[in-house]
Design a protein around this nucleic acid. Structure first.
Length: 464
RNA sequence: GGCGGCGUACCCAAGUGGCUAAGGGAGAGGUCUGCAAAACCUCCAUUCACCGGUUCGAAUCCGGUCGCCGCCUCCA
């Protein structure tokens, strides 16, 4: 089965076919490191991780580039306000971002280039555009003259001849010939960071870094470009203009955009007080894997409504799967094979994969997992699971985790002798019907975050 | 003002022309159990915002109404 993905450029779902061989090249718009990254950003980055993992799952070779924007207005203002050098300011938030990625189990892209280390490539690209007569200068800044590029506006399908701009008037501080023209190189302003270049002293405009760095690492034409929907216009539109204007070749074949996250039905914003970073959630005690589960449980092109009730639900759903896996692991090797569960695992895998093939339908993929959990629990109840059946299911979860990486596959180890001893003592107390002592031990362990479950096979425990 | 998306049970959420409308959470009853938890069984949308139309047949297509959200300006 082939992977099909929605392409913003054509507004249709298309099969992903590499431009060359079996290798795909993916560019994903990364963070601007001016603050801790919020969960809305992480909705997008988690989607990019899902895409990355599934491409690898499907056996494609992959070069995945994610940029780090470490120079822009917010950074300059933020660093200025603290009286801190830009580099120091951005490296702190870059480091925090990498830590957050790890907490959310986002795989590292092959290449994570920083804008400030690619000024030369950006300047070269702008000079290339200038030689083609696509730019003009004003007050030391360089602009892109968009009416020189025939296809401009194709991605976002904006009607550029629309005379009325309504109440959204352009309040740009730079003067431009056409309001839609955008800045490639911003003239130096007093007190701001700048680079001395052939374009004069100044700093890059926002869009140019992605054109320069994607072409640097992935070539003039590549397969996939991902980002949040808000980037469709103007960012990605302008990237296309910059790249295709310079090369005369198609820039990207397949554009994929993820929808935004809102909080309790409202746009997340600091003024509304519904603004959360990943760190906020972890400080509140939420499991990062439950956050990951929640972010992955809604189809990426549908707006995700984040809520704390949703977090609780995600945590419960995840726990159900993990409880099942733990229970399944207890099936002894010697238990006689009964193909029924093995067949269910194979069916789950087929459903799982065909769901993801269909534009990364994670909700349907999770349904396949839960159907298997239900079936498996029932067969466990009836003692109709053999060693080989157990391994077939664990094998499936291992594959599913290549994508979701949110399920607990390893067995939990009791590293603390004291705890093991208490569980042992409680078992004896129960045998002698000393339930007062038994309950006392349970509540003791409960305080340490350990939950006990008594089963026919003995006492099972897990972390709360 | 222009453009686009969405509205499926108490909550989250698949499904986009045709078997009984996935799955999860919460809830109710039952089994099991010293208790608890987990698990299992049963129940929980004659109906998919509303109205009208197309069709043998629509949650799915068309038109209208209402509501919510996003983009058009920095933004994942």
């Amino acid at each position: 089965m082939a992977l099909r993905l929605y392409n913003t450029l054509t507004r249709t779902t298309e099969e992903v076919v590499p431009l060359e061989g079996r290798d795909l090249r993916l560019y994903a718009c990364g963070p601007t490191v001016y603050d801790f990254v919020h969960i809305g950003n992480f909705r997008t980055f988690t989607f990019q991780d899902l895409l990355r993992r599934y491409l690898l799952y499907k056996g494609f070779g992959l070069t995945h580039v994610m940029n780090i924007t470490d120079v822009d207005d917010k950074i300059i203002n933020g660093a200025g306000a603290r009286g801190e050098p830009i580099q120091e300011y951005t490296s702190r938030y870059t480091q925090a971002f990498l830590e957050d990625m790890e907490a959310l189990r986002l795989q590292r892209p092959e290449i994570m280039p920083r804008a400030t280390r690619h000024i030369t490539q950006m300047v070269d690209l702008i000079l290339r555009l200038r030689r083609k007569g696509l730019t003009y200068e004003q007050d030391g800044s360089t602009y892109y003259r968009i009416d020189r590029l025939p296809g401009y506006g194709e991605l976002s399908r904006l009607d550029l001849h629309e005379a009325e701009r309504g109440d959204a008037t352009d309040a740009d501080e730079y003067s431009k010939d056409n309001p839609r023209d955008f800045v490639l190189w911003k003239a130096r302003k007093p007190g701001e960071a700048y680079w001395d270049t052939a374009l004069g002293p100044g700093r890059p405009g926002w869009h140019i870094e992605c054109s320069a760095m994607s072409m640097e690492y992935l070539g003039e034409s590549f397969d996939l470009h991902a980002g949040g929907v808000d980037l469709v216009f103007p960012h990605h539109e302008n990237e296309i203009a910059q790249s295709e204007g310079a090369t005369g070749r198609p820039f990207v074949r397949h554009w994929v955009h993820s929808a935004h996250l809102v909080v309790e039905g409202e746009k997340m914003s600091k003024s509304r007080g519904n603004f959360y970073t990943l760190r906020d959630l972890l400080d509140q005690g939420w499991d990062p894997l439950a956050v990951r589960y929640l972010l992955l449980s809604v189809h990426y092109r549908k707006q995700l409504n984040f809520s704390f009730q949703g977090m609780t639900q995600a945590q419960s759903a995840l726990q159900r799967v993990n409880d099942f896996i733990q229970r399944l692991r207890e099936v002894p090797d010697a238990a006689e094979e009964n193909r029924e569960l093995t067949e269910a695992a194979l069916q789950a895998e087929r459903n799982f994969e065909s769901s993801l093939d269909d534009d990364l339908n994670t909700s349907a993929a999770l349904a396949a997992i839960f159907e298997l959990v239900r079936k498996g629990n029932l067969l466990l109840e009836e003692k109709r699971v053999g060693g080989p059946d157990r391994d077939a299911v664990l094998g499936f979860f291992s594959k599913a985790n290549e994508i979701f990486e949110t399920f607990q596959l390893e067995s939990l180890e009791l590293e603390d002798d004291e705890i093991a001893r208490l569980i042992q003592e409680r078992t004896q107390a129960r045998q002698t019907r000393d339930y007062a002592r038994a309950d006392q031990i349970r509540s003791l362990l409960s305080e340490k975050g350990i939950v006990l479950e008594d089963t026919r096979e003995g006492t099972r425990w897990k972390r709360a």
